[in-house]
């Protein structure tokens, strides 16, 4: 019965990254971009002080308050930067360290393995132990009790390894603090969002290895 069900449902996997994501696949609001008006007037309204010369994407938490001050929601979720890549491509193992997130970033990572996005076709896999991992994925604002387990996990990973911080709490502290994960560990890649959309996570992950 499951076979018939699957055949009837057809192929629903997104064609990303070979094609741009459609509006049906990414219907959310995405990052805001300044279109008109004085940006200085908007800088007081942002709760995480993300607006100065321009909007700092890594601090934005999508509270939508700046919409009344000349910002437009673009629907773009692909914001990531990578400083150091892995020296190989394919069969990359990811180890998740939840350093104090609100559970939304965890849920988005869980959604990466569903048939719509299917992380495994791009060569990424989740591993339960840091000994087999290439990427350490950190989410959430680092709480006091999670500093030591996070550092222990980093110690336990073999070379070559990189650290990816995803979500505004990890990259910049978000609404819960002023500093992100880079206070404790060197961060090699950052992905923005609150929480980062699966397409955004894929965008960031694909940049971390040599294929792209």
């Amino acid at each position: 019965m499951w076979v018939i069900k699957g055949l009837r449902k057809g192929i629903i996997t997104t064609k990303y990254p070979d094609e741009k994501p459609t509006k049906d696949e990414v219907p959310e609001i995405g990052v805001p971009v300044h279109r008109h008006g004085d940006i200085k007037a908007a800088s007081g309204v942002c709760p995480t002080d993300a607006i100065s010369e321009a909007l700092d994407f890594y601090k934005c938490i999508f509270c939508q308050r700046c919409e009344d001050y000349g910002f437009e929601m673009t629907g773009n979720v692909e914001i990531a930067e990578v400083n150091r890549k892995l020296p190989f491509s394919g069969s990359v193992h990811i180890f998740l360290v939840d350093a104090g997130s609100c559970n939304a970033c965890n849920r988005e990572l869980d959604m990466l393995t569903n048939p719509y996005y299917d992380l495994h076709r791009l060569g990424f896999f989740f591993t339960p132990t840091p000994r087999h991992a290439d990427i350490m994925f950190v989410i959430g604002k680092v709480t006091d009790r999670m500093v030591e387990p996070m550092l222990k996990a980093y110690e336990a990973m073999p070379e070559p390894k990189i650290v990816v911080a995803a979500g505004s709490c990890a990259t910049s502290g978000g609404i819960f603090g002023n500093e992100g994960v880079d206070r404790y560990i060197n961060v090699d890649a950052k992905i923005s969002g609150c929480p980062p959309s699966p397409i955004g996570l894929l965008y960031g992950l694909l940049k971390t290895y040599r294929r792209r």
Binding site: T129, P130, R131, E148, P149, M150, K152, A153, E155, A156
Partner: peptide, 9 residues
């Protein structure tokens, strides 16, 4: 040389 991994605890 590192410690054995025991879940961080």
């Amino acid at each position: 040389y590192t410690e054995a991994w025991a879940g961080g605890g």
